[in-house]
Structure formats: structure tokens, C-alpha cells
């Protein structure tokens, strides 16, 4: 703080009255205060990213080494069934998770917003899973979905002998077993964000729509949701970052099984870097992950944030 304050007093002296103040020195104190964060971002994030991309063109094993192999790591990556399946799984999980989290989160929030009784209790119950780590969530749902002790076992013991619900051991639907656990954990937070957004809507709008005789559902879809655009953007960013880094839930719940049917890219990266002691392969895979994020995120961010500045 001392630096920031002294900088504050220095700044006006430099910008002599007759000259126009340099753009660089405007808000100098806040810029100086930001230097550590900028340095961290540039050196740690950008530096780390560039380093990773550079080393993805090498044959690094357990230790990083600069033995150039060109695009070999990428050729191998795209020739690996496990990687292709990982991408497909992430796409499936991502789309379902994004849509369902938003829908369920918003519906729960809207219901809580109808001034129901015990709202605090419900809010706590819905948010509670978010306090657990993904590892715990994964293990809990592994047991719940276990055919002998979980849902299937309970229903069968009630008399429905032919009842079959065994997603974690069926390669075709295992991703939905993961999705259930992911939704259980993630929707609570989105619900709270949505609820905060709904509480920010002026009561007068509700009154006005009631006076005009607009049905409640139409008020939500035509008026409230468009007004909550920034809240939705926040929610989507949170959900999307959770999807990309999906790893610990898979490790705890299925370890990628049965077979390789629930593998995800982040797990592929970890597995090749540390299980296979092949850093180059892991770096190539993480570079591809970064690339896909950039391709999707940059145009969207430009539209969302760049557009508003102009308008």
C-alpha cells in the first residue's frame, strides 16, 4: 500500500499542466497495485502455457528434454482410440451437463423464489453437495449405483426382481452415471447464483406483468430470463470450466471404466504424463484441450464482452 500511495502523489507532478497526461500514467496507483497480478498472469499462466506447447513437440519422457520430434506426439494422439473416446465423452457430458445444470438450476431457483416455506432449509439442502469434494461425490455415487448394494439392489429387494439399473458397468450409458453425480453436485451452486439474479429483479416488473395479465411462465421466459443475461453468462462460465477440467469425479467413480468407456481428456493427460511417464504425449493432449477451449471461448467472449463495449 505504501508504494501505491507514494505513486499516487508522484503521478500528478509528472504530468505537467501544459502537457496532456500520458495514457500510461493515468490511474497509476491502481496500475502499480495490479503489477503483481499481471506478472503472475504473464509469467505463470502465459509462460507455463507456452512452455507446455513448446515441449509438446519433443519426446520428453519422465523429465522434460528438448529432443524435437515434430508432430509425432500429435499423430500418435489422434491415432489413439482412448483419446477419441475421451473427446466424445467430454462432448456428451459437456452438452448434457450444460443444458441440464442451467435448466434444473433455474427451475429450482424459480421455485424457491415463489416465496415458499422453509426456503432456507431447501437452499441449504440443494447447496450442500457443492461443499463436498468431487472425490467424495464420486465415491458416494459409486455406491449408490452399485448393482448389489445401491438403487438396483434396493428395488430388487422390494420385489421387482427384473429391475436393472447398472449404469457404471454398462459401457453405453456409463457417462450418464457420471452425469447424475455431476448434476447432483453442481446444480446447487448454479441455483444459488440464479436465485441471487431473481432477487435482483425489481418487484415492480412482476407487478406490471400481473397488471397486464401476462402468464407467469411467459413473464419468466420473455422478461425475467433476458434481464438475467449477466447471471446466465456467469453460470455458463462456471459450468463450462467445470466440464473441461472433469477429472476427479471420473477417477473416483469409474476410473475411466468399464474399459476405456468413461475416459476424459484431463485423465488422458494425467495418465500419459505420470502413469506412462511420457510428458510429451501429455503436453500434446493438454495443448489440444487448450486449443479447443480457445476455439470455442474466444469468439464467444468477443461477442459477449467485446460487443457490449462498442454498443
Amino acid at each position: 500500500m505504501a508504494i501505491a500511495e507514494s505513486a499516487d502523489t508522484v503521478a500528478p507532478e509528472r504530468s505537467a499542466p501544459q502537457k496532456r497526461p500520458l495514457r500510461l500514467f493515468r490511474n497509476l496507483s491502481s496500475k502499480i497495485a495490479l503489477i503483481p497480478m499481471i506478472a503472475t498472469a504473464v509469467i505463470v499462466f502465459m509462460g507455463g502455457t507456452i512452455w507446455t506447447v513448446v515441449y509438446s513437440f519433443t519426446s520428453s519422457g519422465l523429465l522434460p528434454r528438448l529432443n524435437w520430434v515434430g508432430l509425432d506426439q500429435y499423430e500418435r494422439l489422434w491415432g489413439t482410440t482412448k483419446w477419441i473416446i475421451s473427446i466424445q465423452n467430454l462432448a456428451l457430458y459437456g452438452i448434457c451437463s450444460l443444458v441440464l445444470t442451467l435448466v434444473i438450476g433455474f427451475v429450482l431457483a424459480a421455485m424457491l423464489d415463489r416465496k415458499i416455506r422453509f426456503e432456507d432449509a431447501f437452499r441449504t439442502i440443494f447447496l450442500y453437495p457443492f461443499a463436498l469434494s468431487f472425490i467424495v461425490t464420486g465415491l458416494v455415487w459409486q455406491w449408490i449405483l452399485n448393482p448389489d448394494y445401491g438403487v438396483q439392489g434396493v428395488v430388487r429387494s422390494l420385489g421387482w426382481e427384473s429391475f436393472t439399473f447398472n449404469p457404471l458397468n454398462n459401457p453405453d450409458i456409463v457417462m450418464f452415471g457420471l452425469l447424475i453425480a455431476g448434476l447432483w453436485q453442481g446444480t446447487g451452486l448454479i441455483m444459488c447464483i440464479m436465485l441471487a439474479g431473481l432477487r435482483g429483479i425489481d418487484d415492480d416488473i412482476w407487478k406490471a406483468s400481473r397488471v397486464d395479465g401476462i402468464p407467469v411462465w411467459k413473464t419468466y421466459t420473455r422478461i425475467i430470463i433476458p434481464m438475467m443475461r449477466p447471471v446466465f453468462v456467469t453460470a455458463i462460465v462456471l459450468i463450462a470450466s467445470g466440464i473441461i477440467k472433469l477429472y476427479d469425479l471420473v477417477v473416483a467413480q469409474t476410473s475411466g471404466g468399464p474399459g476405456i468407456s468413461s475416459e476424459v481428456p484431463a485423465k488422458y493427460v494425467m495418465q500419459s504424463m505420470f502413469g506412462g511417464q511420457n510428458l510429451g504425449q501429455g503436453f500434446a493432449a493438454s495443448t489440444m484441450m487448450l486449443l479447443s477451449v480457445v476455439i470455442i471461448l474466444v469468439p464467444w467472449a468477443l461477442l459477449e464482452f467485446g460487443g457490449r463495449k462498442r454498443g
Binding site: 471404466g257 468399464p258 476405456i260 468407456s261 500419459s272 506412462g276 511417464q277 511420457n278
Partner: peptide, 19 residues
Amino acid sequence: LSPDTTNQLNDLMTEFWNT
């Protein structure tokens, strides 16, 4: 076998086993 090769064979055999 190097850990890298073992890792690849693990992936292949578990895919075979479960497909």
C-alpha cells in the same frame, strides 16, 4: 517394457476386455 508402452497396452487390453 517402458511405462509408456505398458500404459498403451493397458489401454488396449482393457478396451478389448470390455468391448
